[in-house]
């Protein structure tokens, strides 16, 4: 399963990471090396082996349906990012987080 530059770009897009031509080329080399390492797995016969997601064989605990959280908006929005594009303002207004227009 050899990767090419187009794959790298589409993976980067899926992961929302901007990548230029040069970075894509370097990444291709390094990722191919890592995938080579991973490829060792294919030699193992794993027929009928149950996949292991968790190391402990325990089941999900359930939480009582009781309100335990209070309004911490002010505290949480103190750490909002800067809006950008020269505004110098925090990316919040009227309690809302601001992002570029979402188009549907």
């Amino acid at each position: 399963m050899a990767l090419n530059i187009t794959d790298i770009k589409s993976i980067a897009h899926l992961a929302r990471i901007e990548i230029n031509e040069q970075e894509a080329a370097t990444t291709l080399t390094k990722l191919s090396g890592i995938l080579g390492l991973i490829e060792q797995m294919q030699a193992v016969d794993t027929k009928d082996i149950t996949p292991m997601s968790h190391s402990q064989n325990v089941v999900q605990r359930l939480r009582e349906d009781v309100v335990t959280q209070t309004n911490q908006r002010e505290e949480f929005q103190k750490i909002a990012p800067i809006l950008g594009n020269g505004s110098g303002l925090p990316a919040v207004q009227d309690g809302l987080y601001l992002v570029p227009q979402v188009i549907e």
Binding site: R16, P81, Y97, P100
Partner: peptide, 22 residues
């Protein structure tokens, strides 16, 4: 969006995501 690094310059939402994370 809510905390952490946001790129200073971006054109739209997609650009903001990709630049901030890059």
């Amino acid at each position: 969006v809510r905390y952490g690094h946001r790129a200073e310059k971006y054109t739209d939402l997609m650009d903001m995501y990709c630049k901030s994370r890059a």
